[in-house]
């Protein structure tokens, strides 16, 4: 069994699977990174991912086009973003708890809609893999990296985009300013809430995309499809020390853990009750990783603190 695991073909399976499983984490944690850098903690992305996932499934199955699914996930993500922005920026609701509310709303609503509008979950024609010319033909390497669906490539591209935006643009400067010193930023004429509105909208759209990335390549929706991935994505932001590249590394690590556990099951290395113990791996890893990185780097000073000019 173990000898089967350490073969080239088995490792190709694990690594290709790693990348597919990492993609939803990556979308969600990139969006959350942007939000947290501006001082907004959004625990509700689990719920937004569910809503994005359901809407992408529904749109794709009704129109027959997976790209309509992507669009639907973006739209519903944006709507949820408006809601969250209103609740946290205008009403100053506690961000952690209102996130739990969004989670419950998404969990319940998608379940009801799925039961009433879909019922039998016929698999949709998902996004087909795009083989990158030439690169996909490289033995082993091509199979691992260059035969994926377009959302995978998009997520990696967004790592670069997010890094540039945060570090090289005025918008990024504003994000960092309102996340670290909202009062000072306000004095300098930067609108704290408008900046946060944008990061919330972007973050929720990305969470919607993360939901789509759980549906379109895999073909269907189910109740509680995300199974806690949204919460792990929030943890990955801490893991990644509030940097897109860090979120990327964290997503790959978690995808890897899931893929290894999966291959253990497929090869019969773990079975029965033991697989409950290996299923704990991502959660325990999150705690361990947070314990290692937490002291190293400080979080944005104004994280989860609502901004009120009048104090």
């Amino acid at each position: 069994m173990w000898s089967e695991f350490f073969t080239v073909s088995s490792l190709v399976v694990v690594l290709a699977s790693t990348i597919r499983l990492a993609t939803p984490f990556l979308f969600a944690s990139l969006g959350e990174t942007l939000g947290q850098r501006s001082g907004v903690l959004n625990l509700g992305i689990e719920g937004v991912m569910l809503i994005g996932a359901f809407s992408s499934y529904y749109a794709a199955s009704k129109t027959g086009s997976p790209w309509m699914g992507v669009l639907a996930a973006l739209v519903t993500g944006c709507v949820m973003g408006l809601l969250y922005a209103f609740v946290t920026l205008v009403l100053h609701a506690e961000q952690g708890i209102s996130g739990i509310g969004v989670f419950l709303l998404g969990l319940g609503l998608t379940d009801v809609l799925f039961q009433r509008w879909v019922g039998t979950p016929i698999p949709i024609d998902g996004l087909d893999p795009w083989n990158i010319p030439f690169l996909a033909d490289i033995p082993t390497v091509g199979e691992i990296f260059f035969q994926h669906n377009p959302l995978v490539y998009l997520s990696v591209l967004l790592v670069v985009v997010a890094t540039v935006v945060i570090n090289r643009t005025t918008f990024g400067l504003n994000i960092r300013a309102v996340g670290e010193a909202p009062d000072a930023a306000d004095t300098l004429g930067i609108s704290v809430n408008r900046t946060r509105l944008f990061t919330i909208l972007i973050g929720n759209c990305m969470a919607g995309l993360a939901g789509a990335a759980l549906v379109l390549p895999f073909g269907t929706f189910q109740q509680n499809l995300t199974s806690g991935r949204g919460f792990i994505a929030v943890a990955l932001v801490y893991f990644g020390a509030w940097r897109p590249i860090g979120a990327f590394a964290g997503s790959l690590l978690f995808g890897f853990v899931l893929a290894v556990v999966n291959q253990f099951g497929a090869l019969g290395i773990v079975s029965g009750a033991t697989s409950s113990l290996t299923a704990m791996a991502p959660a325990i890893l999150t705690i361990v990783v947070l314990a290692i990185v937490s002291r190293r780097i400080g979080q944005p000073a104004a994280l989860s603190k609502p901004f009120d000019r009048n104090g």
Partner: peptide, 16 residues
Amino acid sequence: NVNYIKSFGDVALATE
């Protein structure tokens, strides 16, 4: 080979 994935809803894991 039997892979019990410990979830009734995780389509992605079932697919993988």
